[in-house]
């Protein structure tokens, strides 16, 4: 099953290596990772999507908690949460295809952020399903390059990650 972990870490050099190294050496599979700031100075938040059964997930959480720079690990699938991923897509865009592309862009509520004589770059955010669908639509125009952030997630409602009991 797919789980999304929010990991609060001290913002120190090497923390990402400690976390990703732990996943690889214990044979856990990271599908997706995003790292960024939090509202508290000195603390970063990693959002990690992993594919793991319940027993493995428990081990992952416990092993992460053993890292001295890890402050808190929360499983965001335990509670209702919202998640988004941001993706930039560069497609071939001959002038005669642009309006077709533009239609797909509007249908997905994506944005065109760069246009050149032969290509366009789009920005699209959403969950995995939406991004996959967008890729599928763009394939017919010819995708040159894709880049995406990892997924980031927050709990729904007023509750914050720090409130989750672990």
């Amino acid at each position: 099953m797919k789980r999304i972990l929010a990991i609060l870490v001290e913002d120190r050099p090497g923390v990402l290596t400690r976390v990703s190294g732990l996943f690889s050496r214990r044979g856990y599979n990271i599908q997706n990772i995003a790292v960024g700031r939090t509202v508290e100075p000195g603390i970063s938040r990693m959002t990690v999507t992993v594919e793991a059964d319940f027993v493995t997930l428990e081990q992952i959480v416990k092993q992460l908690n053993k890292l001295v720079n890890v402050i808190k690990v929360s499983d965001l699938m335990e509670e209702p949460s919202v998640g988004r991923e941001l993706m930039l897509v560069k497609v071939k865009a001959e002038p005669n295809k642009r309006s077709d592309i533009q239609q797909v862009v509007s249908a997905f509520r994506a944005k065109v952020i760069d246009v050149s004589p032969e290509s366009m770059v789009m920005e699209v955010t959403g969950d995995e399903g939406k991004l996959n669908a967008f890729i599928l639509m763009m394939q017919e125009f010819g995708i040159r390059e894709i880049v995406s952030t990892g997924k980031v997630s927050l709990l729904r409602g007023s509750k914050v990650t720090r409130d989750i009991r672990t």
């Binding site: 050099p13 090497g14 290596t17 400690r18 190294g21 732990l22 050496r25 890292l67 001295v68």
Partner: peptide, 16 residues
């Protein structure tokens, strides 16, 4: 050495 010993130490430090 901090990179090398990450998997075999409880914790390590590079003092900067």
């Amino acid at each position: 050495i901090t990179g090398i010993t990450m998997p075999i130490t409880k914790h390590n430090y590079l003092v900067k």
